[in-house]
Design a protein around this nucleic acid. Sequence first.
DNA 1: CCACAGCTATACTCATTACATATGAAGAAC
DNA 2: GTTCTTCATATGTAATGAGTATAGCTGTGG
Lengths: 306, 306
Amino acid sequence: MSIAVELRHIRYFIAVAEERNFTRAAARLGIGQPPLSAQIKDLEAEIGTQLFHRVAHGAELTEAGEAFLAAVKPLPEEAAAAIRAARRAARGEIGQLSVGLTGTAALNPLFPAVIRSFRRSYPDVELRIVEANSVVLLASLVEGRLDVAVLRPAESDPADLREERLIDEPLVAALPAAHPAARKPAEKTSEGLDLSTLREEPFILTPRSVGTSLHDAALAACRKVGFEPRLGPPASQIASILSLVAAEFGVSLVPASLSELNVPGVAFRRLSAPEPCVGLVVAYRKHRPPPLALNFARVARAIASA
Amino acid sequence: MSIAVELRHIRYFIAVAEERNFTRAAARLGIGQPPLSAQIKDLEAEIGTQLFHRVAHGAELTEAGEAFLAAVKPLPEEAAAAIRAARRAARGEIGQLSVGLTGTAALNPLFPAVIRSFRRSYPDVELRIVEANSVVLLASLVEGRLDVAVLRPAESDPADLREERLIDEPLVAALPAAHPAARKPAEKTSEGLDLSTLREEPFILTPRSVGTSLHDAALAACRKVGFEPRLGPPASQIASILSLVAAEFGVSLVPASLSELNVPGVAFRRLSAPEPCVGLVVAYRKHRPPPLALNFARVARAIASA
DNA sequence: CCACAGCTATACTCATTACATATGAAGAAC
DNA sequence: GTTCTTCATATGTAATGAGTATAGCTGTGG
């Protein structure tokens, strides 16, 4: 016999309590007075006590009614807030977003600009930024530990990720400062360095196990100009590469944005055309990407194309 | 088109979210799976976004679903708590109770005992205790500023109050310590003082405007033994009466419980039979007394008869 | 590769109930 | 006393929540 209490009962009850009058409350609710009386009656039966004293000129709250009113008053607004929260989450306006970032992307000025813009557009999103190598990033994306990542693409990237190219970035030579090829860059009109002049140098690259993209791009560039590079000691992070170059263990090919860095003992030289390039993409799962990931990708594309 | 969100939707949603499976959630809710699916569908339509990803082995929360779950999770319990609060309020277990207290009742040991017992039985009730003269108490009761009062009854008390007699208390004479009639109380077997021996003394009484009960009881006692008392200076509070007696402005008749007080310069003497009496009652509105007032009265009766 | 198991969605019916309309009863105000 | 206001009751109706049966989809195991 016990009828479940519904938000409808609570809304009706609050209306009557506020109007202190069934008829006016019914008008405010847009229903007739008899059904309103019936609903309140049901509610009272369920609670097991009167909530209103019916008097000639209206209805007054009983003690139980006062207690009930105090307790249920916030409920309709809480329900409405829940709906708003769900809608905002669906639009990707609230929630947590885990952004992965590969080492060389972190050094590109694009990335801080994207983050700045995203935070301005979505101030209520909790951002978590994780830096890791491409292999880790891709695995984390696929397994859901990351929602989106900015990284350098490779053909071997999982097929169930969507990658949107943000920019293409030329590779430049990173040379020990004392290297003969490092001398020339004084003139502005200087042509790019001919990569083949580095054919005898050991190349410092990241091991293929932590990211195929840069590794393969560097190899491909060398092969294109006719030599198979000799590999120097591997370096798993971009900072290590530059350190090894500075220590004259060899040369390297790195994204142009790294030439902004002033690393003592390292000189950067652009290469002569055709410059080899590596891309920078924003990646997320094709399957049910979080709305926030899509929003992040959109912001990133907007910044990249600006 | 738009269907109001009800607690039912929320209960169902939470069940599915927790089970991550429509079929099991339906079983837990005691309904069939198709109606559950329909209700969730309605909810999603109302919110305007999917709350679950339907996958082969069940249902997973979307971002919107996660946000909605976090927001609605407490609602069912809040509604249940509201019902409990209303029930408790109806039983007079919670709420505020304003207790009025007349001056001479405050000095009776019964009162602290009642308060102690009430607080033990109803620990969640917020007690407010107001001391005032009977006229103010009665008016406050009728007008709803007080819920219950402990006072001395009079025939003139409003008819829409119910008064339950707690105890009858003899009146005793309050005499200046130097008064001849104050000398005799040494022997335990001493007979009471004959009131008529005080016929020439001025009587210090509270003015009738602040409380008819004691005033009329004292007058009636004097008349019963054959004299019309001469009135001394009026005193509006019981403390003032005793002060004036100590100052030898006259004598008074006061409830026996006051003889517990050690007031320098005042001696108390019991009167000879038939001892005049004043009652002590607990009073509350006949019309819709708050449940708490009834509970208070019940506790008071229990203590008084113990 | 096919059949099966498990899950959700759809189609349809039934019982419930929330609502509207009309009316009655009771108390306050004039 | 009369009238007005207010809430309660009676009754019919339309909406809807829930039940039953079934179809569709998706991984799994033989």
